[in-house]
Design a protein around this nucleic acid. Structure first.
Lengths: 185, 185
DNA sequence: ACCGGTAGTAAGTGACTAATCACAAGCAAA
DNA sequence: TTTGCTTGTGATTAGTCACTTACTACCGGT
């Protein structure tokens, strides 16, 4: 009676698992999320998840890496053909749009917060290195300007995590506005 | 033969548990840390831990709250009697010294990263509100200046997490120096 | 002496979880 | 048709974890 399930390639399944894992890890973290839930959300059995990724930790690293690689691509595309503060501004806007996806936002924060783990730390460090290099190279701006750019990004990320945009308050609006007025100087 | 263990008041034990919990939660997070390990590190049995704090979640909240309250006190004392950029600078120095304790640093980051949980989010939001209010009130500086102050704090916190001070690299040094030169302007 | 409250624990319990193993089923080429 | 590789799962396992129950030991007051 039931139609035979259509088979997919392992790579297609891997993408589905990474999608599900991004959501689960973003919400509950490496230890809080269960491989059972991720497998179910990806539409496969839990043992097959282990066949595709080896261990939970490796899946976590792959998930983080993909999100970070995506972010780099978005930065690169947003700034293409631009220079100076124009380039930084375009990257800032692109960053905001990526982080509007709460899964990516929270996964990023969870990576920062898991830097005690040397493997995760290495992923995060190399991501920052690449992004800083890109921002400096494309914009050609001074270290001070680039530093300010990343500072504001860091604070805005934390403010987004604590839902300061969805649930505005005077103090957080002042931080955000102070941030934007600095941008246009 | 063995001497009877000296009894302590529940409040003394609570402090010991919070100390142990700060370390464990900072390293492994709410889900990664086990109440067994925390109890052992605090020198009590695991059931007694539950008697003292009810649930693991409540212990986590109490631990985070204590660290945050400490931070506020340090800010307040550092800035006492100061105004303007002097006050902000003193707070910045104080913040760096607090965050030199890796347990407090990583616990703070873990709190930010756990803002999907409404209870944790509320703790974090009210902490930021209090700190921003304090910084504005004591320094009397413009929203832009205060925003810049917190921006730089946010980025430096993340850089500390990824051990950019212990393992310096050119790109991170540029971010840090760009940050400091901005401070003195 | 004893009584009431507080400090403290040994011994579970049931639920959950990462990882494994053995095995089935689809598919493509010879 | 058979052979062999890839996709995919059911059943299980060994262990962990938050939390509970039921109990003991200490100590100050009367």
């Amino acid at each position: 009676m039931s139609a035979t399930a259509p088979r997919q390639t392992a790579d297609e399944r891997r993408v589905a698992v990474l999608d599900a894992a991004t959501h689960e890890f973003a919400r509950k973290g490496l230890h809080g999320a269960s491989t059972d839930d991720i497998a179910r959300a990806a539409g496969i059995s839990q043992p097959y998840l282990f066949r595709l990724f080896g261990t939970k930790k490796e899946l976590y690293l792959a998930t983080s890496q993909r999100t970070i690689d995506d972010l780099y691509q978005v930065f690169a595309e947003a700034s293409r053909g631009k220079t100076g503060m124009d380039a930084l501004h375009a990257m800032g806007t692109a960053y905001e749009s990526v982080m509007a996806d709460r899964d990516r936002l929270m996964l990023m924060l969870k990576c920062w917060a898991s830097c005690d783990d040397p493997e995760i730390c290495e992923v995060v460090r190399s991501a920052w290195r690449d992004l800083v290099d890109l921002a400096e190279r494309v914009s050609g701006e001074s270290p001070e300007a680039v530093s300010t750019f990343f500072s504001k990004g860091a604070m805005l990320t934390i403010l987004m995590a604590m839902e300061s945009f969805a649930r505005p308050e005077p103090w957080s609006n002042r931080l955000i506005e102070g941030c934007q007025s600095g941008m246009t100087e």
